[in-house]
Design a protein around this nucleic acid. Sequence first.
DNA 1: ATGAAAGCGCTAACAA
DNA 2: TTGTTAGCGCTTTCAT
Lengths: 324, 324
Amino acid sequence: MATLADVAREAGVSKATASRALTRPDMVAAATRERVTAAAGRLGFHANRSARALTTGRTGMVGLVVPTLANPFFAPLVLGAQRAAEEADAHVLLSVSEYDPGREAALTDRLGEQADGVVMVAPVGSDAELRERARRSPVVLVDRRVGRLPAVVLDTAAGAAEMVGHLLELGHRRLAYVAGPPGSWADEGRRAAMTERVAAAGARLTVLGPVTPTFDTGIATAAEVPHEVTAVLAFNSLVTLGLLHGLRAAGRRVPEDVSVAAGDDLTALGATDPAVTALEVPVEEAGAVAVQRLLELCAGAAGRSTTLTTRTVLRASTAAPRRA
Amino acid sequence: MATLADVAREAGVSKATASRALTRPDMVAAATRERVTAAAGRLGFHANRSARALTTGRTGMVGLVVPTLANPFFAPLVLGAQRAAEEADAHVLLSVSEYDPGREAALTDRLGEQADGVVMVAPVGSDAELRERARRSPVVLVDRRVGRLPAVVLDTAAGAAEMVGHLLELGHRRLAYVAGPPGSWADEGRRAAMTERVAAAGARLTVLGPVTPTFDTGIATAAEVPHEVTAVLAFNSLVTLGLLHGLRAAGRRVPEDVSVAAGDDLTALGATDPAVTALEVPVEEAGAVAVQRLLELCAGAAGRSTTLTTRTVLRASTAAPRRA
DNA sequence: ATGAAAGCGCTAACAA
DNA sequence: TTGTTAGCGCTTTCAT
């Protein structure tokens, strides 16, 4: 491994100059810069991250704590985070908390030691816990808001309300919502927004669940959809898929007997039969933005939050209810 | 942040002794060790990883390159890797290559610089590429074998053959296999093993695909299952789910008209209706073992490979064919 | 069994 | 603009 000293020698300058030429090009004469860059190239030089970290106090690594990877929400999230990190020449340190607040705390601390900061997707831990973490190292929350901590939020509450609006416009009066994970911050927001919207329209919303949003709970929940309900919105695409399966098994046609819509678009919902109306949620962007915010935060910027909006994608699974 | 010097002072010993007490307890008198440990505890001391890495040349980080996270195979894989790393007080640096050999190469190099070694799940890159990577830094391959490079392999070929054996015993003579990702090493192995087994029994195997194994391609492929076929095995649980959906939509009952089995058990297949017979694949273990092997490799051990076996789980989706 | 001292590769004052 | 020098926090000879 070539070291900075090698590069400096090869270029006929001091280590300091070589360092500057490589990390702060504008502090060095153009000619020198060129000689150094050339030398570095020739030697295949890559600065030793550990050494740099030791002097600067910055590791160039961002921690990412997610509750699970078994939920399709996290694939694009992690991808976005990694891309943003790559862009900034940083690396992603991943930990899976398995929805265990204790593990989450421990892992975050472990990561915090090693990373410049951590992006947390913490749907279950307590506010106090999160505040405490944020005091120890820079933290950016995803899909959750805790006081004034910097967060990247997917406004699925507004999206869900918009979706409900669409269903109401179609003429539905009896709606159902298959609620998401018990205790989920995102779920509560959606529920509140939908309830309000439905009430304002003088219609009725039945809340089913909450259930852990998986394919099988979707199937199971299908049996609980009241017969007078003509439109169902489900927490995410997984439950929705199950719901579709279950509804059909019970002999209820979609959308003739009941309209179905999904709270996210994470499992190709455009290819099912019928194609499912869904909320398009910019999850990859959320991951990317979270990392960018975190990096800004580490660079001394003030923490700021971002709200990302969703888009309603209408497909064949929603239609006007049959006249009673 | 408390430093080693602080601990040493607090314990009334030299930095060297403090270091030894913490990292090589047996090189130090029991009493001293205790005083140091106590002092470290009191001060909440955690060795600075960068400093340690600088002196030892080991970062305590393992790279993990996966092609995607959108496939349920990778959730347990990553989880296992992370757990094993945690166990060894190491961290996981994750990169997603998106099935792009170029990106895979670039990311691996980037990781290799920073990590002590990398675990690669590289279903698509060329053998030569992988050999080249392995020369630059310790590498452990997952679910792929390249020459004598250390690898952790899931023996799904044997598993698939066993599954076929089960179907043959039930009396099926016309089988179909929905093949996995084009160019997949694992898929080719399974195909060969199954073909051999079927031929030996004098039965026939139709290969459908290969297709990218998703829910929708499963649905689409259902239409291509020949009518005389009485048993279908699909590459993974995702396609299988789609297949089930598609078969039913086409009016073919499972298992009465056609038996269905899955090449893995990564999406709760026990809760569908009917519950699906599947190969149980120890993916989490594969991730864990890969990291352990890598760490051993970094510690100077010889590279060795491991084969993990699968288990056939019989459920309601497979039955004897109806008499023609 | 312990301590003193050197040094890993880099950056950052401070001088020139 | 460039060079000199002094560490960052740790491990590790080499003495003792």
